[in-house]
Amino acid sequence: MNQDIFVVAEHLKGSVEDVTYELLGKGRELAGSTGGKLVAVLMGSGAEGLAGSLGAADKVIYVDHPALENFNPEAYAAALADVVKANNPGLVLVPNTSMGMDLAASLSVRNDLPLVAYAIDVAIDGGNAVATSQLYGGKVNAESVLEGDTVAVSVLAGSFPADAGKKDGAPDVEKAAAPGELDNLKVRFKQLIEPEGGDVDITAQEILVSVGRGIQSDENLPMVEELAEALGGAVSASRPIIDNKWLPKTRQVGKSGLKVKPKLYLCLGISGAPEHIEGMKDAELIIAINTDESAPIFEHAHYGSTEDLFDIVPALTEKLKG
């Protein structure tokens, strides 16, 4: 594997996303093992100023083009492919986010290089990158060795501390030409759509009672509402509940929902898929109730029970109402 570590910088509405700092922090450590440079790849339009927020990198490669003003799967993939081809880094770290999912697999095919996704850890071992992926809904981890001069790993957000990648400094900015493909795109960005204003702002709640698939039916929600009320909190949910339209999108915790940090996160019938964990793992106290004792949620909870939630919820509500 070549020596330099590249990090694809993700930004939205004029600011660099935290996952970028998480990758820069890890990238710095990996560049230490390979003896290479840590380089951030920034793509945008008139966004060169963002390089100033990437002080942890030794260098920023910046591609400027009107089509890169907002993320665009086709435009960003084309620009990234060119940058990687021209510079031959050893490892390209891409966030395994909504944006990164369009980029990482494209880079792998366009540049014919190996990709491992869903990584929660990356190391250098015997000159190769080794990535640990979280698979099967968080139930199994797989450690893969990537072979090649240039390889790519897409990393789940929240895998590394962001602080390690936040550093003051003004890295050198090297401008790279935008590929011609950007003048004739088949994917066109139209607009950003802000989330609808919510009935309840779950990010401002100190206590959340969160429900998942285990709740079985929306007819069981009133029971949970009652518990949340007795606790002085609100009800939030994992993705399947929102997809079933049992609760509005504003109540969704997780990767494509909201990130919450309540004092208490009581989860009922939530298995704890990585996408959900990403949104709640920083809660101060996590109590999980799930009849599946192998549910990944128990790895992240402080306390757990495999008793039936349909027994615990009424019992707890009654005691709270005293």
């Binding site: 290089l113 190996p114 990709l115 491992v116 080794v130 990535a131 968080g138 139930k139 199994v140 981890n141 797989a142 450690e143 893969s144 060795v145 990537l146 072979e147 090649g148 390889v151 999980a288 004792e293 192998s294 549910a295 990944p296 128990f298 790895e299 992240h300 909870a301 402080h302 306390y303 757990g304 029970s305 495999t306």
Partner: peptide, 18 residues
């Protein structure tokens, strides 16, 4: 270009006091 060298289950209940 990549191969699994080790697959393992993270200890269930590792974090939670049951």
């Amino acid at each position: 270009g990549s191969e699994v060298r080790r697959m393992f289950t993270p200890e269930a209940g590792e974090g939670a006091e049951m």
